[in-house]
Design a protein around this nucleic acid. Structure first.
Length: 447
RNA sequence: UCCUUGCUAGCUCAAUUGGCAGAGCGAGCGGCUGUUAACCGCUAGGUUCUAGGUUCAAGUCCUAGGCAAGGAGCCA
């Protein structure tokens, strides 16, 4: 009896008889022979059925087998450069085929292009397309490599709550829900404050889970539900934080290159752009970034684009600003020292320059923009209380958070990384919605 | 909330200045022993987003509405 294998293993079974279980991705009927491109979850392999090798009625069914039919195929593996697939270059000569189910003829997804609306309405089926399969395989590797690096470097994974009592930074962007007799609870938009408590027990921690933003943002970089990684580190300043970010990201990209090359190639990704992603990453201040933007603003002749590049010191960067900055570098670039006024209340002010703070964003190249945002946190209890009062935040809700600065306060830092943004950048996607299996956007909660 | 663009066959899109509703893919039938989103021949498939208006004549122009997209605002 033939051994059951997955397509990824196929190169180890040349000239041997194997069994493949999967789905018909494409069929090419050539008359007396039929090519079936079969996907099994691990890869895509071409299976070839010759009329002379099968019973006439079986061959007849195979030559009419609809796309997405589920099959169990047994036959000998051959090496053949002409064979398409992932990894490709191998094919199975069909000796036996069990048709588990003939798929319906009205399968709506064709191998040609689809519009965004149609593709998303059929996300449960769109997932089967090779491009989506490849992107989500890269995503899984991004997540695995992230945990791998953190675990190897002494971080402890903590699970921070999804249901939270109040906003970390205002209440306008929270999804709210009734919570028994306690009033309202909110879906977490960050686990950071809880991780700041966790470090005083564990030193270096991270949380990695879904995060919710009720922002009415409709852009290629936004989802209302996305997966965020948030490390937090005790006894760590801004420089130490940047070092952690660049080491971790280097590991992620190099691991994807090692383990997901066929997927990246099938997506048409320019691999040379990724091979270069190695620490150290360039570091520029907000002030330096402002100068770069100003130069481009002055050079720009198109009035439309010039308007988008308009920039006054003190504002946060928009997408066009980030694009201009990232295009100066072929690696991700750190921009640190943002104006205190545009950043969250807990960020440590710059020494002798309180108008800027020890915040840092990591911007991905090729125009992808912000993938990580973080800061050194305020460690002084009086300074933190002052910031909470200045921003008119509910002092009562932050009582426990202020406790952290009373009992053994230390300089500490942390950042958040958007899984979908990192995956999109590595894959070269146009939109983050393809980097999560079932995207949630302002206009879509189905399927 | 604002700006811009789009909505025509199951899907992706054409349709010149307002003048006969078209193609490719998918589906059906036939052909082909090396296809790579195969190719070739034939067949079926339409309330042109909705409602109203202008006109001899509306997919096309006007009014209102709906849906979607990606930008702004907002945003770890």
């Amino acid at each position: 009896m033939a051994e059951y294998i997955s397509v990824t293993q196929i190169s180890n079974y040349i000239e041997q008889e194997v069994t493949i279980k999967g789905w018909v991705y494409n069929r090419t009927d050539k008359g007396k022979l039929v090519f079936l491109l079969v996907r099994d979850g691990s890869g895509f392999v071409q299976c070839v059925a010759f009329k002379g090798d099968l019973e006439p009625e079986v061959f007849d069914r195979v030559s009419k087998l609809p796309q997405e039919s589920s099959v169990i195929i047994t036959g000998a593996v051959r090496e053949d450069k002409r064979a398409p697939g992932i990894p490709g270059g191998f094919e199975v000569g069909v000796k036996q085929i069990e048709i588990v189910q003939e798929a319906g003829l009205d399968y709506p997804m064709s191998l040609k292009d689809h519009g965004v609306d149609f593709a998303l309405d059929n996300r449960h089926l769109w997932l089967r397309m090779q491009s989506q399969w490849a992107i989500l395989r890269v995503r899984a590797t991004v997540m695995a490599a992230t945990r791998e690096w953190l675990d190897l470097n002494g971080f402890v994974e903590m699970s921070t709550p999804i249901l939270t009592p109040a906003a970390a930074e205002g209440t306008t962007t929270l999804f709210e829900t009734e919570y028994f007799d306690e009033g309202k609870a909110y879906l977490a938009q960050t686990g950071q404050l809880y991780n700041e408590a966790n470090i005083f027990s564990f030193g270096k921690v991270y949380c990695f889970g879904p995060t919710f933003r009720a922002e009415k943002s409709k852009t290629r970089r936004h989802l209302t539900e996305f997966w965020m990684l948030e490390p937090e580190i005790a006894f760590c300043d801004l420089d130490g934080l940047m070092e952690i970010e660049e080491q971790m990201l280097t590991h992620i990209v190099q691991r994807v290159l090692r383990d997901r090359m066929p997927e990246l190639k099938s997506l048409g990704r320019d691999i040379s752009k990724l091979e270069n992603i190695k620490a150290p990453f360039p570091r520029i201040s907000y002030d330096d970034a402002a100068k770069i933007i100003q130069e481009f603003y002055e050079k720009e002749t198109d009035p439309e684009k010039k308007k988008l590049l308009k920039f006054d010191w003190g504002i946060d960067f928009g997408a066009p600003h980030e694009t201009v900055i990232t295009q100066q570098f072929d690696k991700p670039v750190f921009v640190y020292g943002y104006p205190t006024a545009v950043k969250a209340f807990y960020m440590e002010p710059w020494p002798n320059r309180p108008e800027v703070c020890k915040s840092v964003d990591l911007l991905a190249p090729e125009g992808y923009g912000e993938i990580c945002g973080g800061s050194e946190r305020i460690s002084d209890p009086d300074a933190l209380l002052q910031r909470i009062r200045d921003q008119k935040l509910p002092e009562e809700a932050f009582k426990w958070y202020l406790d952290l600065r009373k009992y053994g306060s230390v300089p500490h830092s942390g950042f958040g990384m958007g899984t979908e943004r990192v995956t999109s950048w590595i894959c070269g996607n146009e939109h983050v919605r393809e980097a999560i299996a079932f995207p949630r956007t302002i206009k879509r909660v189905y399927p």
